[in-house]
Design a protein around this nucleic acid. Structure first.
Lengths: 339, 339
DNA sequence: CTGTTAGCGCATTCAT
DNA sequence: ATGAATGCGCTAACAG
């Protein structure tokens, strides 16, 4: 470690026998500084390899040009896509990105939030932990003037800025597509019943059925814990109905694949005896012999970018008069998997 | 925005009519503070919802408890796994994580690095951009006493801290396995020729062949740009040899899958006419009708955790006497895909 | 055009 | 056991 002393404006001022404020202004191209001194300062700065100490600037300016992102798991495809989009937008606006994984643990979520607040991040983007009910720790941020944008796992209230997948639209597309293919008994495999998306999916399903004047059979709606075994159980319950479904809408591609494997073990052929549509549109489906017949792309990166856009807008408007909460839905797109 | 004034120790001092230093000490449980005042301070602090302003502390202490992570793309499975492991270790040690994607662009890499340096991150973990040759921008960090740990895409020199996949070990396992299965003509599909891993893979391949006293045929070594089309071309070149390979070792699962699809289009059956082994062991292989016969798990999360461990060790030892550079190789594991 | 001064919030050294 | 004073590096209001 060579560890030469890191140069400061004070050092430059001393060497040039001028004041620190002149140096500061010269470095910022302030109009009131003479060309002569300005160049002298800038040259010495370069020579010494001067770089401003941002921690001092953050402290003084009460602005850190940093946003915090809290989400359950960085490793999940959806969140990895989202964070990638967030970072891209943030960097365009010269903002830094601080990350934290809640691991679906409310306590961890709070800890991370506190750390970010104390670090005075300028804003926060969150996808809530699965078990977060109470939002007090987020509303407490108002006192610090730190705006929050929720995405994907968002609170129900419209009083918050939020970006989420348009479940009614996506689900509507999926069901309509299956109807067009002639299916009348359509099963659902949701995630856990507590998940907001489960309810949304079911509600939309019922609406569509109602509009088409088809009778609604709630035994066609199953729930699973997203594990392989849980999915098998859900699928089993659907298959054991007196009138089993001819098609199934599954919460995501992995669940669909597990369900398909379960069917196979029961000698029920995918895309022949039964059909699947799921959400996510993972790239892997292109390599499968027998994929879900279609999958709804949810554009994770786009969701992240949109959340970051909203936050940037908030940060760029004067704090005392920020735009009203935005509630943004990102449309899905049904991608048919070529035979 | 309610935006009440954010409480500081000065505020507490004023209300209690004591000095700021007493408040500071009371908050830190300093032994020299009387029990009476200590509790008075702590109670008022809680009542006001006091939280220390970390930007001030960072500035004063010249320590930010923040590490920077720079990698090409957050969205790639490997890096998503790595960052997840890094965050986990960092959080255990109460460190924050700042991220940046170089997008394999050297200029972006430098920009991010400068921003992180100026923010005085305590240390940095990097996976180099594909085109980074010159490491000057990293060695410049020494002046600031900021240690660096490289991972995955690491420099050749052993003078740096680095963590990488044990290519010789993993490749040795793969080739040996194929040999045991009776293969003698084994093809390789590398990534681009500039990639260090391509050379390593080829070198190991040649070593093993030599040891087994098999003649080395360099026409069996192909390169691809990792796209679907590039992979098809590489596979085509291997298949058009007078003596085509009976097995192929591919740089990763996706390339193997593309190669398998190409073979299929030429009526060459995977796991019958030809066999594949690749690197990564993506979960999807469990859902494939016809997967590579085996894949080498590279433990991305473990690599990230190890890199973070090394960095934490560096940060916890006194700056003037840090341990010598560590060069750590993470062993792979050949996972056989059950028929 | 340039210098002087103050202060951001906190930890800390030196008094008392 | 407590207070006063200092300074981290920088910006900016004010004064010339």
């Amino acid at each position: 470690m060579t560890m030469n002393k890191v140069p400061t404006i004070k050092e430059i001022a001393k060497q040039l026998k001028i004041s620190v404020s002149t140096v500061s202004r010269a470095l910022h191209d302030h109009p009131s500084i003479g060309l002569r001194t300005k160049t002298r300062v800038q040259e010495l700065a370069k020579e010494l390899g001067y770089e401003p100490n941002q921690t001092a600037i953050f402290f003084k300016q009460r602005k850190t040009f940093t946003i915090g992102v809290i989400l359950p798991y960085l490793i999940e495809d959806f969140f990895a896509g989202a964070i990638s989009g967030i970072e891209e937008i943030a960097m365009q606006h010269k903002y830094n990105v601080l990350i934290g994984q809640s691991q679906d643990n409310v306590e961890r979520e709070k800890e991370i939030l506190t750390a970010m607040k104390n670090q005075r991040v300028d804003g926060i983007i969150v996808s809530l932990s699965k078990h977060t009910k109470n939002l007090d720790h987020f509303t407490a941020l108002e006192k610090y003037g730190i705006p929050v944008v929720f995405f994907d796992r968002v609170p129900a209230s419209n009083d918050y800025n939020k970006v989420a997948f348009n479940m009614p639209q996506g689900t509507h597309q999926a069901i309509t597509y299956l109807m067009e293919k002639g299916h009348r008994r359509i099963g659902i495999i949701n995630g856990p019943e507590e998940m907001k998306s489960s309810k949304e999916r079911t509600d939309t399903y019922m609406e569509v059925m109602q509009k088409k004047r088809l009778k609604i059979d709630l035994t066609l709606v199953a729930y699973c814990d997203l594990t392989r075994e849980g999915t098998a159980e859900a699928m089993e319950s659907l298959l054991s109905l007196k009138q089993p479904p001819t098609a199934v809408l599954a919460i995501n591609d992995y669940v669909a694949l597990d369900a398909i494997q379960y069917c196979k073990s029961k000698k029920i052929k995918n895309n022949k005896d039964i059909f699947f549509v799921s959400y996510a549109n993972l790239p892997i489906t292109n390599y499968l012999e027998s994929p879900p017949m279609a999958s709804i792309e949810q554009y994770p990166k786009k969701q992240g970018m949109k959340a970051a856009d909203i936050l940037m807008e908030l940060l760029e408007s004067p704090e005392d008069q920020r735009p009203a909460p935005q509630n943004c839905l990102i449309d899905g797109e049904l991608v048919i998997h070529g035979r």
